[in-house]
C-alpha cells in the first residue's frame, strides 16, 4: 500500500498477511482499528502477544496447550488405554464436540504427503511409538482425514502398530447424517456399503 505512509502502511501490510485477508479487507480492518475505542485495541494487542508467549504444544500429545501438558492429558477421568490419532489440533476439537470419545489424543501435525516433501519422519510418529512403549494404551483409533493422504498415513500407522498387538481401528466413512442417499457420490456410498453394520433389535 504505497498510498499510505509509515505506521498505517505497516499495519495494512501486516493484516494483509493473515489468511483470507486481501489488501482491501486489510485496509478496512486497519481503519476499523483506527476508529475503535483505545481500550478495545489494547485488549486485542494484549491477547495477540499473550497467545504467542503462553500457548505451546503439549509435550505428550502435541495438542495446543497453555501448560506443559494439555487439559485432556492432565484430566484423570480420561481413559488412558484408548488413544485417538489425528492430523491437527483442530481435529481434536471436532472430535471433542461429539462427546463420544473419552480417551486421549495424539496429534501428528499433518499427513504423509511425499509430493510436498512430507514423509513419516516429519510427523510426530516417533513420539507416538515412545508413548506406546509402556503398554498402557490398549486401543488405537486412527482418525486421519478421509482423503488419499490421510488414508495412506493410516495405512502406514497400522503397519507400524500391528506388531505391537494393539486393537487398531479406523474411523468409518459413509453417508452424512441428514442427507439424501441419491445425492451421495459413488465412492462414499461404496464405502458406506463396505462399512455397513448389522442392526441389533
Amino acid at each position: 500500500m504505497a498510498a499510505y505512509e509509515g505506521i498505517i502502511a505497516d499495519l495494512i501490510e501486516e493484516l494483509g498477511r493473515l489468511p483470507g485477508v486481501g489488501p482491501k479487507s486489510a485496509q478496512r480492518i486497519a481503519f476499523h482499528i483506527l476508529a475503535a475505542d483505545p481500550a478495545e485495541v489494547q485488549r486485542l494487542a494484549a491477547v495477540l502477544t499473550e497467545v504467542k508467549s503462553k500457548v505451546r504444544f503439549c509435550e505428550i500429545c502435541g495438542n495446543v496447550s497453555e501448560d506443559v501438558q494439555c487439559r485432556i492429558c492432565r484430566d484423570p477421568r480420561r481413559d488412558p488405554s484408548i488413544l485417538c490419532v489425528v492430523e491437527e489440533a483442530k481435529d481434536v476439537v471436532a472430535i471433542e464436540r461429539t462427546r463420544e470419545f473419552r480417551g486421549r489424543y495424539h496429534v501428528l501435525g499433518g499427513a504423509i504427503n511425499p509430493i510436498d516433501g512430507v514423509g513419516p519422519d516429519d510427523l510426530r510418529i516417533r513420539e507416538l511409538m515412545t508413548r506406546l512403549a509402556d503398554g498402557a494404551v490398549q486401543e488405537i483409533i486412527i482418525a486421519t482425514d478421509p482423503n488419499v493422504e490421510g488414508e495412506a498415513t493410516a495405512t502406514y500407522l497400522a503397519r507400524m502398530l500391528r506388531p505391537m498387538g494393539l486393537t487398531i481401528s479406523r474411523l468409518a466413512s459413509g453417508l452424512p447424517v441428514g442427507g439424501d442417499l441419491e445425492y451421495a457420490d459413488e465412492i462414499t456410498l461404496g464405502r458406506a456399503f463396505e462399512g455397513r453394520r448389522s442392526i441389533d433389535v
Partner: peptide, 25 residues
C-alpha cells in the same frame, strides 16, 4: 464423473502410495 477411482487401492498400500506419488510428480 469417475472413470477409475484408484485412490482407495493405492492409499491402502503404503508402497503403492509412495510409488504413485513419484509418478504423478
Amino acid at each position: 464423473d469417475t472413470l477409475a477411482p484408484h485412490g482407495r487401492a493405492i492409499s491402502g498400500d503404503y508402497g503403492l502410495f509412495t510409488t504413485a506419488t513419484a509418478m504423478v510428480e
